[in-house]
Design a protein around this nucleic acid. Structure first.
Lengths: 325, 325
DNA sequence: GCCACCTGATAATGCGCATTAGTGCGGTCA
DNA sequence: TGACCGCACTAATGCGCATTATCAGGTGGC
């Protein structure tokens, strides 16, 4: 239509006028005019094939991206991811096709994985299969995990929340309020985030000269209350609720008789109106940062690992040690 | 690695053993073995190029897909869309790259639209630009709109909510309760959904022999209450709240003195605990159905147009006409 | 010995683009 | 006059796959 070759259109379209190749202003204008009239758009698939890049970032989650159950927990991450993708000019590809046999989890590498359609991808989830991780690494697929991950045959690029520091700060606050015997309720393992919290707890208790206790769990209320702990660090808000309820059932006042600190954020709605002391996971910021880091990896490579600070939440469940003050 | 040609691999990979082409079991097994060992996966982009299909469905929204404001309204649609995409074995592409100049809406056809990367797409939004719609039609891009849309240079494929029927049922219910003078509050235009509600109202009122009133809006409380209407149909829950508040401000009891029916669902959080009579928009089902219809369009073409029934909500704001019963 | 026929696999082609190595042309300089 | 150069543009190639036409080798019939 413009009387020029496909090459010329390509050059005009991509503004590649710098590298030795020149297009006369008249020709350029003629081409642009036709493009405007027809609304021509280069086929992204072909582009990808030739250019080896897509401007499409994949988002992988083991659960549905738009869940109904854990919506409140994952949503903020996705808000951040989308925000940053929009700014970066990228589209997001949700791997919804990862076949799910009844009741099974999605898999990153299914028989017909489409992960390579994206330039790279962002991983989201409480835990991520080590197999999947190490395969991502060995195949050299660019990715960034939201949430710290242990090595999986090599260092994993991630942006996580700095749980150890957050927990440490809370332990120090408790110590400053006179608490010495502190209990940690929760598995302290299974996911990096849990391990990090427990580690932060253990180290901080040691540093402040306190005494760290590990009752079996919130269920084992007898051991918990028999331990003499004056403050309980609950691995998750759900644990915190369980502890608080058990305490009240025994006529103990929270925080009058027992302080409770809830770590993390509710991964599923917890029916409570307790204003726990704890911290806020910077989920939105983590999502944003993950996309930024992915972009950086794509451009310059590397294995970025970042921890974002959590903001402490005062709450009303952490009080001075009974009898003090 | 298997000592065969690229063609053979392709044939094995796609199981195309029916159409005259044959692969011996030994060769096939040898190829599959290598595929298993290496974890080879066909490049989706190249596949798309050659096959002209992707198994990627685009999702276009004018606002962010993961919004914070209107989250509650759009979320159910997306849940349905994702569910069905997962069952269909498709991935979802979120057009987050549609450049947004500060404060402007996204555009389907931006300078570098990637819409054609997807096999087709689902459109979401209260209103959709007629320009965009007619261009989708004229360019023959397969799509399905969530929500009924008027013709835009041709019939638009959609799956919508059957507002006219729902509103009619509510009007009939009101009529059965003795109401005759009924008012509709809202613009009744601007979006197809509003027009449909007003139309359902007008027709149903005429059919039941009642009297339909159109005060200017909830703001114009004087006209509304002076009209003698015993029941108000509010175009949106927000309008319903406004009406109910205005009524209470005048000492009128809802529904004792005035019944209020709220149509649709809150598009943004409305701070109220009123249990309005009205109906439930089958949002999740609409999302699911949109994906199903898109699949159908891709396979067999056509322009499906469907309306899904809304479930009536009893609520507590629609009572028998004062002085009756 | 020749042709017809079937089987199993491959060479060749094209999808729509980006990229590179030219190509033709008019002008410069020695 | 011819070598040389910059300019504006194009022909050709390849990206990784699906598809189609073709081919080599074997079998059977007459």
């Amino acid at each position: 239509m413009a009387g020029v070759s496909q090459t010329t259109v390509s050059l005009v379209l991509n503004g590649r006028a710098e590298g030795g190749v020149r297009i006369s202003p008249e020709t350029r204008e003629r081409v642009l005019q036709v493009i405007r009239e027809t609304g021509y758009v280069a086929d992204p698939a072909a582009r990808r094939l030739a250019e080896r890049r897509n401007r499409i970032y994949g988002v992988f989650t083991y659960e549905a991206v738009f869940p109904t159950e854990t919506a409140d927990f994952y949503h903020p991450f996705l808000v951040g991811i989308e925000e940053c993708a929009e700014e970066t000019g990228c589209d997001l590809l949700l791997f919804t096709s990862a076949k799910v046999e009844r009741g099974e989890r999605r898999r990153i590498f299914s028989s017909e994985s489409r992960i390579r359609l994206a330039d790279g991808c962002v991983l989201l989830g409480r835990t991520i299969d080590r197999e999947d991780l190490s395969r991502l690494l060995s195949e050299g697929i660019p990715f960034v995990s939201v949430g710290r991950r242990d090595d999986a045959g090599g260092p994993v690029p991630y942006v996580g929340a700095d749980y150890p520091s957050a927990v440490r700060a809370l332990v120090e606050r408790a110590a400053a309020l006179g608490h010495r015997r502190m209990a940690y309720v929760g598995a302290g393992e299974g996911a990096e985030s849990y391990a990090d919290r427990l580690r932060g707890f253990t180290e901080a208790v040691a540093a402040t000269g306190g005494e760290g206790l590990r009752p079996a769990g919130a269920q084992d209320a007898d051991r918990l209350f028999g331990s003499g702990a004056s403050v309980v660090f609950a691995e998750e808000p759900a644990d915190g609720v369980a502890v608080a309820e058990a305490a009240r059932a025994r006529g103990l006042d929270v925080p009058g008789d027992l302080s409770v600190v809830a770590l993390g954020a509710p991964t599923r709605p917890v029916p409570t109106d307790i204003d726990f002391a704890g911290f806020r996971i910077p989920r939105r910021e983590m999502g944003r940062r993950a996309v930024e880091l992915l972009t950086q990896v794509l451009e310059r490579g590397g294995t970025p690992q970042e921890l974002l600070a959590c903001e402490l939440v005062e709450g009303s469940t952490l009080a001075p040690l009974r009898g003090r003050r």
